[in-house]
Simulated scan of single mutants.
Amino acid sequence: MTTRRQFLQTGLAGGLLLNIAGCTRPSANGRRGTVIAAIAPVMLAGALGQEEREAAIARTVAGVETAIAGLALPVQEEIGELFDLLAFTPTRALAAGLWTDWAQATPGEIRAFLENWRHSRFDLLKSGYAALHDLIFGAWYAIPENWPGIGYPGPPEVK
């Protein structure tokens, strides 16, 4: 169980990290796609075939961008803060334990980051993992080119 002191410390640390990242707005500079392109292959490891891997990742990145654009503005801002945190090197290193840029990170490093956030004792990090998971998997499953690989024939035809 989280104590009051842990809750306050987590809130203060999270607020500080988000403010530092928010000052630079790296996600506004198109770095969000870089983060998604690095994380998606690790999350979708069992679903991606080798033959069209790059095309599938590019479609997934575009799908995540489309999904974010369809969210309410306050939610878009929260998602932007998450990607700001992950794109800015000092906050990424502190929050995710990843000092290298996303493009140079190994799948093992990314997998470790995702598992740490997924099983964190802090709900804020668990929520960040859930947002990344839902955005990436939602975008991937929404792409018709991916349906044959999972045996989904597509939505029923309405007559």
Rank of each mutant, 00 (worst) to 15 (best):
R118C: 02
I143P: 02
A69C: 06
L94H: 04
R121G: 02
S120D: 15
P153F: 13
C23L: 15
F122C: 02
W117K: 08
A103V: 06
A56V: 03
Y141M: 05
N29H: 11
I79D: 10
A72F: 09
I136A: 02
P156D: 03
H119C: 05
A139C: 11
R53K: 04
E115K: 03
A103Q: 09
F88C: 01
A112H: 14
I36L: 04
A38S: 15
G128L: 12
L71W: 08
L44N: 03
A96Y: 10
R111P: 02
P153W: 14
D84T: 02
A131G: 00
A93P: 04
F88H: 06
G46R: 11
L114T: 11
A142V: 12
A38V: 11
N29L: 07
G149H: 07
R111N: 09
L44P: 01
Q50G: 03
T3H: 08
T34V: 14
I79H: 14
N116E: 04
A139D: 12
T100E: 03
F7A: 14
A62K: 14
G97V: 12
L18G: 14
L12G: 03
A142D: 08
T10Q: 08
D134P: 00
N19L: 04
I110C: 00
A37M: 01
T24H: 11
E78V: 12
P155I: 05
L16S: 02
L98W: 06
A112S: 05
G154A: 07
W102E: 00
R31W: 09
Q50W: 12
G80C: 06
A93L: 06
T89E: 15
M1Q: 10
S127C: 10
W117Y: 15
Q6V: 06
R92N: 01
V42D: 09
Y129T: 02
S127E: 13
E54P: 03
A96N: 03
L71K: 09
L135S: 08
G70P: 15
D123A: 09
R32I: 13
Q9Y: 12
G46L: 08
A139N: 11
T66S: 04
A87S: 15
W147K: 12
R92K: 06
A87Y: 05
E115W: 06
A130H: 08
A112P: 05
T66D: 05
P74M: 07
D123E: 12
Q104C: 00
L44D: 04
S27R: 12
I57Q: 04
P144Y: 09
G22E: 07
V42W: 12
A38Q: 08
P155K: 09
M1N: 10
T3P: 11
I150S: 14
D134A: 08
E109Y: 02
E157S: 11
P41I: 01
G80L: 12
T89G: 03
E51P: 02
P148G: 15
M43S: 07
W99A: 01
V75D: 13
L86K: 03
P26W: 01
G154H: 13
Q9C: 06
V35G: 01
Y152G: 01
L98Q: 04
W147M: 04
A56K: 12
T100W: 10
A95E: 11
L16M: 14
